[in-house]
C-alpha cells in the first residue's frame, strides 16, 4: 500500500518533473486564454449582429440565419475544426491551427448566442416596441436602445453557460496541434515519460475555469429570470 502511494506520487505529483515542464504548460495556458478571449469576443459579436439582423424579419435572410444556426448547433465542434483545418487547404485556403480553432469555435458560439438572444428579443413585451416607436424612435433605435438592452439582460444565465461550454472547447485545438494546454501537456508527458505534466495541465484548466464557473453561478443568481 505504501509502495502504491509512493508510485502514485512519483507518477502524478513529481516535483522535479513539474518544475522542469511548468514553463511549457504556462505557455500553453497563455495560448488557451488568448484563443478563449478571441472566441468569446467574435462569437458574441457575431451572434448579436445576427440576432439584430433577424429582428428586421427579411424572409431570405431569416432562412439563411436559421440554417446557419441549425447546422452549427448540430455539428460537433471537433468536426467543424477538422473541416476547416484539413479540408479547406484543398481549396488553397490553408489555415493555421490558431485560425481554424478560433474561427470554428467563434462560429459555434455565434450560432448558440444568436439563438439565445433572439429568444430574448422575442421575450421583450410588444408594448416596449410600441411605446418606443410612438415616442419617435426609428426601428433601429428602438432595437438598439430599448429592446436589445432588456433582451441581453434577460439572457445572461443561459449565455454564461454556453460561453463556458464553448471556451472549454479550446482544448479541441490540440487535435490540430494548436500549442495550447492539452498539446503542451501531452507532448511533455510523453517526452518526460511521466504523467505529471498532465496533472499540471489539469491544474491549469482548473485555474482558468473554476473562477469562471463560480462567476457564472453568481451571474446566474444575479440575473435570474424573474417570473
Amino acid at each position: 500500500m505504501d509502495n502504491g502511494l509512493e508510485r502514485l506520487v512519483f507518477a502524478f505529483f513529481n516535483a522535479e518533473i513539474a518544475a522542469a515542464w511548468a514553463p511549457k504548460i504556462l505557455e500553453g495556458m497563455w495560448v488557451t486564454i488568448l484563443v478563449s478571449l478571441a472566441v468569446v469576443a467574435t462569437g458574441l459579436a457575431l451572434g448579436l449582429a445576427l440576432a439584430a439582423l433577424r429582428a428586421y424579419r427579411i424572409g431570405p435572410v431569416d432562412v439563411a440565419i436559421v440554417a446557419f444556426v441549425d447546422i452549427l448547433r448540430a455539428l460537433p465542434p471537433l468536426v467543424v475544426i477538422i473541416i476547416l483545418f484539413f479540408a479547406f487547404p484543398y481549396l488553397d485556403l490553408p489555415m493555421s491551427a490558431f485560425t481554424a480553432t478560433w474561427l470554428s469555435l467563434s462560429l459555434v458560439l455565434a450560432a448558440f448566442a444568436e439563438e439565445i438572444w433572439w429568444a430574448g428579443i422575442l421575450a421583450v413585451p410588444r408594448g416596449q416596441w410600441e411605446a418606443a416607436r410612438s415616442t419617435g424612435l426609428g426601428f433601429g433605435a428602438t432595437l438598439g436602445y430599448v429592446v436589445l438592452p432588456q433582451a441581453v439582460r434577460m439572457t445572461v444565465p443561459p449565455l454564461v453557460n454556453r460561453v463556458i461550454a464553448v471556451t472549454k472547447g479550446t482544448a479541441l485545438g490540440s487535435v490540430v496541434a494548436l500549442s495550447e494546454i492539452v498539446s503542451q501537456a501531452s507532448s511533455a508527458a510523453s517526452l518526460a515519460g511521466n504523467p505529471t505534466p498532465l496533472t499540471l495541465g489539469a491544474a491549469a484548466y482548473l485555474a482558468i475555469f473554476v473562477p469562471v464557473v463560480v462567476l457564472g453561478r453568481w451571474l446566474e443568481t444575479r440575473f435570474a429570470w424573474k417570473r
Partner: peptide, 16 residues
C-alpha cells in the same frame, strides 16, 4: 467536472 474540459479528462484517464 463542469470546469474540466472533457477532452482533458479523457486524456488524463487514458494516458495517465
Amino acid at each position: 467536472f463542469r470546469a474540466f474540459p472533457p477532452l482533458v479528462l479523457l486524456i488524463f484517464v487514458y494516458f495517465g
